Computed example of a mutant assay.
Amino acid sequence: MSNTVVLLLSIFPLAMVLAMIASQRVGEVNDAYSGEVTGRGVRSSTGTYGPTGHYVMHIRTDEGRELTIEVNSRTYQSLGVGDRVVKAPGARWPVQPE
């Protein structure tokens, strides 16, 4: 019985962290905005398997919010500073309006 309690108490914090990460990702995907790219860059971090680059874009929305989002390499290459962007609900990345 005590082993079960210890197991549950050790798994619960991990489950909470994973739930928080998942809810944040869902919120990002459901977010919608339009605005302009004000900056972009690459952040690097060193992990177990060596250095890793993360592509980051800074966006000022039409409502005045300042966003810093991490994007994939394809989105990073396709958008430059000064480009207009639109992110639809359900889309993972912002794109140029058509």
Rank of each mutant, 00 (worst) to 15 (best):
G90K: 09
R40A: 08
G50F: 13
I69M: 02
Q24Y: 11
T61R: 06
I59R: 06
R65K: 07
M1A: 11
T4R: 14
E36W: 06
S2P: 14
L14R: 13
P13Y: 15
R40H: 11
D83E: 05
S34L: 06
R92N: 07
E66F: 03
G27I: 00
E28G: 03
V37S: 01
L7T: 10
T48K: 14
V17G: 12
M20Q: 11
T48S: 13
Q96K: 10
S45T: 09
Y76S: 01
M20K: 13
G39C: 04
S34W: 05
V71I: 01
L79R: 03
G53P: 14
Y76V: 00
L7P: 15
S45K: 09
Y33L: 02
E36S: 05
S23G: 04
G53S: 13
T38F: 01
T4W: 15
G47H: 10
T48I: 14
G64E: 06
V95K: 10
K87V: 04
R92D: 09
V29T: 03
S73D: 02
G47C: 10
F12I: 14
T61M: 08
I21C: 10
G41A: 02
A88V: 02
R40E: 08
V26F: 00
G39S: 05
L18F: 15
R74D: 04
G50R: 11
